[in-house]
């Protein structure tokens, strides 16, 4: 199986789906001539032309809403946000229109649209460019939300998102764009939404994470094994809504101790809901309270010295894991 980057995996997914379905277009700031701010769409303009790969002005509200209107008419637009942080100026179009039109029309109108882009901290770009709004999106019935963490997931889940008949928010990660991994080449390589992945098996502690936090969880699992002989199971949620509750409960019932790790800020973050679900459905299987490591609860800091501590890092996750053992 060829090894490619997360960025190339997304590019393949977009390319294959644009080839496959004439209703699919990619639009956003700098996606065409500039080849994408993070080069995710490199080569697509040359391949598909300006009718399919569409540069927009810096007008998130207009092009997000335009894409929702086009989706209502049966197109399948993929909207790139240079950063998910920029979706905040298009909030109404995503959180009212894309999310609710199907419901408000009594199911008469579908909105098959993908909003995608990076949503992460850790790159020293300050508070306005480091938001992780997967909790906002998951809090909005009508939207689906996924956070692929590997190149294979990036491709298989992006393809699933584009083929999905509901609005899907794909939260990527700029730090993962260069991550390499094996990715199947088959045209119909699809990873269904709502299916978590057990990254490594273990018996003593479960670390449940999504997005780049999965990488941190894996590093901590290795440290715990090597230095403390602790066997850690790491579960990658992959998809926030739909959520693989069965997989969450399975690992909790197996290890009886659970640590949740995410880049969200803690208050009303995704993991508050996960923790709630665990105590509701697996209370008797817990040998310790559920613990969390989230981003430190302040606006994202600019300075590397501060931000590297702010987002979940190896040492903070390890320290919290030790509290559970």
């Amino acid at each position: 199986m060829p090894e490619i980057t997360y960025r190339e995996a997304l590019n393949q997914a977009l390319s294959e789906e644009i080839s496959r379905d004439p209703n699919v277009v990619l639009m956003g700031e700098e996606v065409a001539q500039f080849k994408g701010s993070y080069k995710v769409s490199e080569g697509l303009l040359e391949k598909f032309g300006p009718d399919k790969i569409i540069d927009t002005p810096i007008s998130e509200a207009a092009f997000s809403g335009l894409a929702v209107g086009a989706a209502m008419m049966g197109m399948r637009p993929v909207v790139e946000f240079m950063f998910w942080s920029f979706c905040y100026v298009a909030f109404d179009q995503i959180f009212n229109n894309a999310a609710s039109i199907r419901y408000m029309s009594g199911g008469l109108i579908n909105v098959p649209i993908v909003f995608r882009g990076p949503a992460n901290g850790g790159t020293n770009v300050g508070a306005t460019h480091s938001h992780t709004p997967e909790n906002f999106a998951a809090n909005t019935p009508g939207l689906k939300v996924i956070c692929p963490s590997t190149p294979a997931d990036a491709k298989g889940m992006m393809k699933a998102a584009i083929r999905d008949n509901d609005p899907v928010c794909v939260m990527e990660n700029t730090i993962l764009y260069n991550l390499k991994g094996e990715v199947p080449e088959e045209e119909d390589f699809i990873i269904p939404l709502g299916k978590a992945r057990t990254v490594c098996q273990g018996n003593d502690l479960s670390i449940i994470a999504h997005g780049r936090s999965v990488m941190v969880a894996l590093q901590v699992a290795e440290t715990l094994q090597e230095k403390h002989g602790v066997s850690v199971e790491v579960l990658d949620l992959r998809s926030i809504r739909p959520l693989d509750l069965d997989a969450i409960l399975d690992t909790v019932r197996k290890t009886n101790r659970v640590l949740l790790v995410e880049e969200n800020k803690p208050f009303c973050g995704v993991d508050s809901q996960i923790a709630y679900l665990i105590q509701e459905h697996a209370f008797d299987h817990l040998d310790a309270p559920v613990k969390r490591v989230s981003a430190i609860d302040v606006p994202q800091a600019y300075s590397k010295a501060l931000e590297n501590f702010q987002i979940p890092n190896h040492d903070r996750v390890l320290a919290k894991a030790m509290e559970l053992l």
């Binding site: 199907r102 199911g107 509901d166 269904p192 939404l193 709502g194 959520l243």
Partner: peptide, 26 residues
């Protein structure tokens, strides 16, 4: 809870899995 997602309204064509709704009915 009808009419929220196309997918939950069309269970015979459902491709994703997992929980789509989070009211405490489980």
């Amino acid at each position: 809870m009808d009419d929220v997602y196309w997918e939950t309204d069309n269970p015979d064509q459902k491709v994703s899995s997992g929980e789509m709704f989070f009211e405490s009915s489980r």
